[in-house]
């Protein structure tokens, strides 16, 4: 994910100097941005060879792992923030990785495409799966194996006893706080393990 607006918005959720683990960090652009603008440190996790190489060239710490295997390498609450930016929708074990995010991070931030954005609803109403700027794939070749909505993400967080700290939508580079499940192409949730679990 290299959308600079989303990076800026995600950065606003992260405290200065935080230790960050970025699950599915892509080419390392977000971590690089966080290091430059917020003095953050940390690591990215990637499975793709090309992205691992890109991170190394940028000088971003990257660990090549398959997220589906969990985060056994990382201790409980060992990061201030664990990020899953446009990662959740590609995971078979989405719920397990969500739990792992909350275990390893004091807070977690998940962003993913909101399938309930109105143009998507409209498209399905007319009988076709949506193809948009945010969901550019055809139904038969999409890497997005977990199709969910902003409301679904909140429900998954609640189901896992996570406390929601922030939730909003993002559309065309802007934060959407009113009716995000209708009006935003991207869903963003910041959460923490509920105190009862700590």
């Amino acid at each position: 994910m290299t959308d600079p607006n989303l990076h800026r918005i995600v950065a606003s959720l992260i405290p200065q100097g935080a230790r960050v683990l970025d699950l599915g960090c892509g080419d390392g652009a977000l971590l690089s941005y966080l290091a430059d603008h917020k003095g953050c440190s940390g690591y990215g996790i990637e499975i793709s060879d090309e992205n691992v190489q890109a991170c190394m060239q940028r000088g971003v710490n990257v660990i090549q792992l398959n997220l589906e295997e969990g985060l056994a390498m990382f201790g409980d609450q060992s990061f201030d923030v664990v990020l899953q930016i446009d990662t959740l929708q590609n995971l078979k074990n989405a719920e397990v990785v969500m739990q792992e995010t909350a275990r390893v991070g004091k807070t977690g931030v998940v962003a993913f495409p909101n399938f309930a954005h109105w143009p998507n609803r409209w498209s399905v109403l007319w009988g076709r799966m949506p193809v948009t700027r945010r969901l550019p794939y055809q139904w038969y070749d999409t890497p997005n194996i977990r199709v969910g909505t902003h409301a679904d993400l909140l429900a998954l967080a609640r189901r896992n006893h996570l406390q929601i700290l922030e939730n909003f939508g993002v559309h065309l580079g802007r934060v959407v706080r009113t009716l995000p499940n209708w009006r935003a192409s991207t869903s963003v949730v910041k959460f923490t393990r509920s105190p009862a679990q700590l």
Partner: peptide, 10 residues
């Protein structure tokens, strides 16, 4: 990682 050292792994 346990020591918060800078590390990359391929």
């Amino acid at each position: 990682l346990d020591n918060r050292r800078e590390v990359s792994y391929a």
